[in-house]
Simulated scan of single mutants.
Amino acid sequence: MIYTITVNPSIDYVLQLKDLNTGQVNRTQTDVKLPGGKGINVSRIMKELDIDSTALGFVGGATGSMFEELLSQHQLKTAFTRVSEDTRINVKINAVDQNEETEINGAGPEITQTERDSFMNNLDSVGDGDIVVMAGSLCKNLDAGFYLDIAKKIQKQGAEFIIDTTGQALLDTLPLHPLVVKPNHHELADLFNVTLNNEQEIITYARKLLEKGAKHALVSMAGDGALLVTKDKAYKANAPKGTVINSVGAGDSMIAGFAGTFMETKDPIESLHVGAACGSATAFSQDIAVKAKIDEVYKEISITEI
């Protein structure tokens, strides 16, 4: 089983308008409310790939109930921990003529010690052969050690983990040998306080993550494709041609494709291929990609060894 953890999920209120004029009244052309959060996006892509997953995380208040109602439309298996404060709302504004995306993200609820303990107890069902995907930001009063605590617990229970976060929260988990880490190229540069000017430099610093303990480093590069770096080799997936409609969830979709395929095949190259297809297909879609779009994009992607 694959478990996805979204510590700070959201209702994503996505607005599309012609132009965004700050300080003035703006009217939308379309709007949609979506269940958001990086781990949620991973589970939704897993569903499209016909791979079982269970979504975990904190939800609370009236917005939490609305979040679960929105999520129920996608028929995902969930085991959320209820909290007293409200699930957050994130606003995503797409100004079409300006070709700009603006995001306003809520902070999310504060998690009490009792709620934290309840969540950790919920992980008791994770066991040998399972993969746990930890993705996204933490709630405002959870420290960077929260992901580390999760990694230690599930590792003792025989599971592997994938982590998609940034900064110290990522670095702290590396000695526990995550199956995959997935920074984008900007996040990778920030981790080591450097500027990365080309693919070879990206590979060099991705390999430093492996030296610190990661088993695979998956680096997304937006319109330049993606890199998979292993101990001995590096592979590149090209970026297929298409119109980017909404970049929200593209990286999560890549993780989902990689994790689901790797669990079934143990083949990192094919996992990169499927992951890259899922990521690009979502970027070319209004919402998380559907299976037909993933299959279409898959044919346009090739994997080359660098």
Rank of each mutant, 00 (worst) to 15 (best):
M1K: 12
M1L: 11
Y3N: 06
T4N: 08
P9M: 12
S10N: 07
Y13H: 14
Y13C: 07
L20Q: 08
N21P: 01
Q24I: 13
V25K: 12
V25F: 09
N26L: 11
R27P: 12
T28A: 14
D31E: 13
V32R: 15
V32E: 13
V32C: 13
K33M: 08
L34W: 08
L34G: 03
P35K: 12
G36K: 02
K38Y: 08
I40F: 03
K47S: 05
K47V: 03
E48T: 05
E48N: 00
L56G: 03
G57E: 07
F58N: 00
G60I: 03
G61D: 04
M66C: 15
E68F: 04
Q73G: 15
A79E: 14
R82D: 12
V83A: 06
D86S: 15
T87Q: 11
T87Y: 05
I89K: 00
K92Q: 01
I93H: 10
D97V: 12
Q98L: 14
N99G: 09
E101R: 10
I104A: 10
N105M: 05
A107Q: 04
P109T: 09
T114E: 13
T114I: 08
T114V: 08
E115Q: 09
R116Q: 14
F119P: 02
N121D: 09
N122Q: 14
L123C: 04
S125V: 15
V126T: 09
D128A: 15
V133R: 01
V133E: 02
A135W: 00
A135Y: 06
A135P: 05
L138T: 08
L138P: 03
C139G: 03
A144E: 13
A144M: 09
G145M: 07
F146E: 07
F146T: 01
L148K: 13
I150D: 05
K153Y: 10
K153P: 10
K156H: 15
Q157R: 14
A159N: 02
F161I: 10
I162E: 06
D164N: 09
T166K: 11
Q168V: 09
L176Q: 00
N184A: 07
H185C: 06
F192T: 06
V194K: 03
T195G: 07
Q200M: 06
E201K: 04
I203E: 14
K208L: 13
K208A: 08
K208S: 06
E211R: 14
K212F: 07
K212T: 08
G213V: 09
K215R: 14
L218R: 01
V219Q: 00
S220R: 00
M221Y: 06
G225I: 09
L227I: 07
V229I: 14
K236G: 03
A237H: 08
I245C: 10
I245K: 15
S247I: 06
S247L: 06
G249V: 00
A250S: 13
G257H: 05
A259C: 15
M263P: 10
E264F: 13
K266L: 10
D267P: 10
G275M: 02
G275R: 03
A276H: 10
A276G: 07
S280R: 00
S280L: 03
A283F: 05
F284A: 11
I288Y: 09
D295P: 12
D295M: 03
E296W: 00
E305G: 11
E305Y: 05
